[in-house]
Design a protein around this nucleic acid. Structure first.
Length: 903
RNA sequence: GCCGAGGUGGCGAAACUUGGCAACCGCGAUAGGUUUAGGACCUAUUACCUUUUAGGUUUGUGGGUUCAAAUCCCACCCUCGGCACCA
């Protein structure tokens, strides 16, 4: 018998499939569509490792099965090729990033092809191609036109090693995500996108999509919505006499006076606010010099300035590492007035308050906030309890007076920590005795009437820094024109390049290093920077920043639909029909690490495109219907695979030695798809053994290898394989409607036949649920069963088995399919159907329990009645032994399962 | 600290959706066969314990519900992942 040598058959079929284009999806087909998307990779120089392959293989299996189900299935692939590693490589070697990218993508593509993945290569995209980034730039211009892109000076996270500004999302533990260097803060002009404008919708519309709860939670937490109140604290001179009166008496609003606004979610604790804290960057400190006389002035400004300077020099990381040791400085000479009771409270600046959240200032309630508690303890500030915990929540509070008894204000508190929960108000004037949840509304309303508070919603989400001072990215298609700036009067002066001039191509440079000041290398190219204003034709300067690496992946799921790769033509309305047919993506799989980055960004951009009508309204405001994530593959010993650890397993190693089908089966069999697993070289052997076993089953179909290409280089062996991608995928009609059953024969249905039907059901359902490990297990059971008896190796049994195996081991299945001399490709066959009646067994093992313990098992017909089953149980020898001398209390019968006799 | 996932043989795991024979399938191991050897392949055994034609114990720990719990409920312990001064 010919040996199973995957090296020989895999290459062959890969060539046939590619030439015949059987995996190409058809635009505008009448068939139901299925758009399956896996995240496209960044083609690094190292190539793929086995972990990358896991989602590709899994969704290749799903795509193949969906095709067999009759879906017009789109499963595309492309390259997210702009980015830092390629640029750093260029800095080091002087090799142009374009050249490196070409080499890397070729490498990646070769590896992917060697796995036998059924990508529609006719739709391949590359984000670095001018034909592609023309659209990335076009989207930016639309954002700019709609006031969603703006430039602002801001402190950014600066990586001194990469010489690049990082988005908050790219900073991991205070270090650069890419190189691990410590991030510092630096002021820089940056382009930003107003993703915050979409914050509410990005939360709301999560209800429309099928994402794992975990991903939804991650996104919601990242956006961080919180409802609360903005409260105004008037500022006063600490020298003035105390104006504390009863809260009733100070209703009349005076002439506008200096004040500080804070954001709080716990306005119910307002009476416990004993000081204010401002972030060091808070503008109030700058502006305090021009305070009205009654407000006074900061008397220790030198000291304050020193603290501010220190805080600014600290990185976020340093600030965070000092969580336990809070620092701050009092603004001497000023006090704030608590709007609830007019009490004078001191004002501090401290770096535990963040400038970019809320109003950059807080009211400190040390009794009910652990951070304020720590600060108050350190600086010996008053702590006033205003919420009393309800001891017994089951008893409703009848006597609120009992709760009104509280330690007198301003006495040092005895408890050891802040109480942050809900409860009953104390020390809160006329609100005392109220539930904190209710007080929140009542106090808020009361202050709102006086114009001292307003209800607001705050988000943690910040606008998205959308520029990088680097080379290898999409140029931002704007120029700065002094003349237009003056004329506009707005001081803006940014003029967009006309759409017809897109793409704005990235010029060649010799030196890829950013300047010492952190400007893009493009800033050194005079001929590029100096240009004419498209508006007034005067001299103007180009923007030299480029877009971040996320820009190209915001919309790539649309690019796959825009046929005519890299020559997509304006206007976008040309593509409405294909968008309408294919969108939204039916199933999108990607890494968990993208839950708050790419996934959130691309949802935002899609919503924007939907808003401006660039995509049809009918497809809805969400790009992805369903999202799943794959688990990571760890190296041997459970360590993350990395070049530096030298434990990287490449698919090539496995494909060359064991074959692509073995790699596919192993990766799918090794554990649940969504979970982290450790690579085990011994496990690979098991997968290979399984395929060898399959090979042997088909021993009788041994044929001499035939030429598969004719002289013209066309596939010769298979007739009728679709060669023209425009034609509909042909489906062979010769397949049985039901597997295993021969309608003519009246012979009893064999156990094997039932197993066949069961396996068809299980494998099909398991694939749709990404339970590949159990699907393969079921296939193994079937193979073991088939190989027990040669008689069972009938043509029909083998055929059905091959169809089930085809998505998992496409090469082997195709080879055996051809050896059986069937026409057409196994991958163009319909998925077998099972008979629900035959999935159920005719007999089952009736388990007999005595008081819950298994004592005997007997074969019984499936439809056995309760009475019969009980009689059967009691008639058993063993059972009699166990119940002898004991009274039967109760007998439980579960149809199809067991009888339990309680004694 | 907060959020999430998980804890089952020597190992990867299955059974959890729907409470009903715990450990499918695979790896490894042991014995035998085959082979010049190694490897490959075939057959059998393989959760643990005991006094082994049989019985007992076992799903992180403790409790609860139930005729019956890996599965449902409560408390705790441990591991992994993510977020983290967001007022």
């Amino acid at each position: 018998m010919i040996k199973y040598s995957p090296q020989k058959i895999e290459r062959k079929w890969q060539r046939v499939w590619l030439k015949s284009g059987i995996y190409w999806a058809k635009d505008g087909s009448k068939k139901k569509k299925s758009y399956i998307l896996v995240e496209f990779p960044y083609p690094s120089g190292e190539g793929l490792h086995v972990g990358h392959c896991r989602p590709y293989i899994a969704f290749d299996i799903l795509s193949r099965k969906r095709r067999m189900d009759g879906f017009n299935t789109l499963f595309p692939m492309g390259w997210d090729a702009f980015g830092l590693p390629t640029e750093n490589y260029a800095v080091k070697t002087g090799i142009h990033p374009r050249v490196a990218t070409r080499k890397n993508t070729a490498f990646f593509k070769r590896q992917q092809k060697s796995l036998g993945l059924s990508f529609d290569w006719s739709r391949e995209i590359n984000t670095t191609d001018p034909g592609y980034y023309k659209w990335t730039q076009w989207i930016f211009l639309q954002l700019f036109k709609n006031d969603l892109a703006y430039k602002a000076k801001m402190p950014i996270n600066w990586c001194p090693s990469c010489k690049i500004g990082l988005a908050a999302e790219e900073v991991i533990d205070g270090s650069c995500e890419r190189c691990g260097a410590k991030v510092i803060r630096k002021e820089k002009e940056q382009w930003l996108l107003r993703i915050t404008k979409y914050a509410e919708r990005l939360i709301q519309d999560l209800d429309l999509v099928d994402y794992p709860e975990k991903v939804k939670t991650l996104q919601k937490d990242w956006i961080g919505r919180s409802e609360g109140w903005e409260v105004q604290f008037p500022i006063s001179n600490s020298q003035l006499p105390n104006e504390t009166k009863s809260s009733e008496a100070r209703e009349e609003p005076k002439a506008p006076r200096a004040s500080i606004n804070v954001f709080t979610t716990r306005i119910d604790t307002l009476f416990g606010a004993t000081y204010l804290v401002l972030a060091p960057e808070h503008p109030f400190i700058e502006n305090s010099k021009s305070l009205p006389a009654q407000a006074g002035e900061i008397r220790n400004s030198k000291f304050v300035q020193k603290y501010i300077e220190e805080a600014k020099g600290k990185t976020e990381r340093e600030r965070i590492s000092e969580v336990k040791e809070k620092t701050g400085v009092e603004l001497k000479g000023l006090v704030a007035l608590n709007p609830a009771n007019g009490r004078k409270i001191p004002i501090y600046i401290a770096d535990y308050v963040l400038v970019h959240y809320g109003k950059g200032a807080i009211m400190a309630v040390p009794a009910h906030d652990s951070r304020d508690w720590d600060f108050a303890k350190k600086y010996n500030l008053p702590i006033i309890d205003v919420i009393k915990q309800q001891q017994d929540t089951s008893n409703k509070i009848q006597d609120t007076k009992a709760f009104a008894e509280a330690p007198p204000p301003l006495t040092p508190r005895l408890s050891a920590s802040a109480y942050e929960g809900e409860g009953i108000l104390i020390n809160s004037d006329r609100f005392t005795g109220m539930k904190s949840e209710d007080a929140r509304i009542r106090i808020g309303d009361w202050l709102q009437k006086q114009g001292l508070a307003k209800k607001t919603v705050n988000y943690k989400l910040r606008d998205w820094i959308f520029s990088r001072q680097r080379y290898w990215g999409e140029p931002i298609p704007l120029v700065f024109c002094e003349r237009c700036a003056l004329r506009q009067g707005s001081g803006q002066g940014w003029v967009q390049i006309p759409e017809k001039d897109l793409p704005l191509k990235l010029p060649n440079v010799k030196d890829y290093k950013p300047t010492q000041e952190g400007e893009s290398p493009l800033a050194k190219v005079k001929s590029w920077v100096e240009t004419k204003c498209p508006n007034c034709h005067g001299s103007a300067r180009r923007e030299t920043d480029v877009m971040p690496n996320w820009a190209g992946s915001n919309w790539y799921y649309l690019a796959y639909l825009m046929r005519g790769i890299f020559s997509f033509q304006f206007p976008i309305s040309k593509y409405k029909k294909v968008f309408k047919y294919w969108m939204p993506v039916d199933w999108y799989n990607g890494g968990m690490e993208h839950s708050t980055l790419h996934l959130l960004y691309s949802r935002f951009i899609f919503k924007f495109l939907w808003d401006i009508g660039a995509v049809p309204k009918s497809i809805g405001p969400e790009p992805y219907k369903k999202r799943t994530s794959h688990g990571v593959i760890l190296g041997e010993g459970g360590i993350k695979m990395s070049k530096s650890k030298g434990n990287v397993i490449t698919p090539d190693q496995v494909v060359w030695r064991q074959g692509a089908d073995t790699l596919r089966v192993y990766e799918m069999f090794m554990g649940p798809f969504g979970e982290t697993i450790t690579w085990d070289p011994k496990g690979v052997k098991g997968a290979r053994r399984f395929l060898e076993k399959v090979w042997k089953l088909f021993g009788k179909y041994e044929i001499r290898p035939q030429p598969i290409f004719n002289r013209l280089g066309r596939p010769a062996l298979i007739q009728g394989l679709r060669r023209n991608p425009k034609s509909e995928m042909p489906i062979s009609s010769s397949i049985l409607d039901k597997v295993g059953t021969n309608p003519k024969s009246q012979a009893p249905i064999s156990q094997l036949e039932r197993l066949l039907h069961k396996t068809v059901k299980k494998v099909g359902e398991d694939i749709e649920n990404l339970r590949f490990n159990t699907a393969i297990s079921a296939l193994m059971v079937l193979v073991n069963e088939l190989s027990k008896n040669k008689e069972q190796l009938t043509e029909n049994n083998l055929k059905v088995f091959l169809l089930l195996l085809a998505p998992f081991a496409p090469h082997l299945s195709e080879e055996l399919w051809q050896r059986m001399r069937y026409k057409n490709s196994v991958h163009l066959q319909p998925w077998p159907k099972y008979d629900p009646k035959l999935v159920k067994e005719e007999t089952f093992t009736l388990v007999i329990q005595i008081s819950g313990r298994v004592r005997d098992k007997v074969e019984a017909p499936s439809r056995i009645s309760e009475k019969e089953a009980k009689e059967l149980a009691i008639s058993s020898e063993r059972v009699r032994k166990w119940i002898a001398g004991k009274g039967i209390k109760k007998v439980v019968f579960v149809p199809g399962k067991l009888v339990n006799i309680v004694v």
